[in-house]
Amino acid sequence: MKAAKALGASPAGRFVARYVVLLVGLFAVAAWQPVDDRLVDPYTTFVAHESAVALRALGEQVRVDGQVLSSPRFAVTIYNGCNGLEAILVFVAGVLAFPASWRARLLGVVLGVVAVQLLNIVRVVSLYYVGVWRPEWFTTAHVLVWQTVVILFAVVLWLFWVQRHALAPARG
């Protein structure tokens, strides 16, 4: 009890409390049906198109039908939950919860969204090739490997943002 009170009073404890509230709030907004229909769903379709552009650049004859990427060799469906949004929300909650200037936070959100999005394209492209060459590894690569990598990437990205941008005013 004493330890919990001390934690709550510390900057680290306040940061985690803000992080949890923001994380739940952001996911609640993203799960709300009108937001899902008008934002998340079109965003998932956009991710499918981005990934198709990358795969075509690699010489694959893929076509996009909604959120399904298909070629004569393999097909992947980008579901809500595979669009990189989870990592983005974890990162954004960390950025907004941190005691930084709004300018630094805005920069963090923009850079984070772009970085996670780029990683997500790499993820979809790699999963496509795993499906082509080693379909028996697809589930492990999809669930275990890439979800883990995406979470760790978001945490490391957040730590770099804190060092490079969020603490800049304290440095100066």
Binding site: L7, P11, G13, V16
Partner: peptide, 30 residues
Amino acid sequence: IVVTFGLPFGAWAVAFREGVARLAGLSASG
């Protein structure tokens, strides 16, 4: 979704707050 993706960072930041605070530049106790 929320717990699956949010818990690793949240639990790590709480359980090892001194080390995480050092990395992040926050004071863990004060």
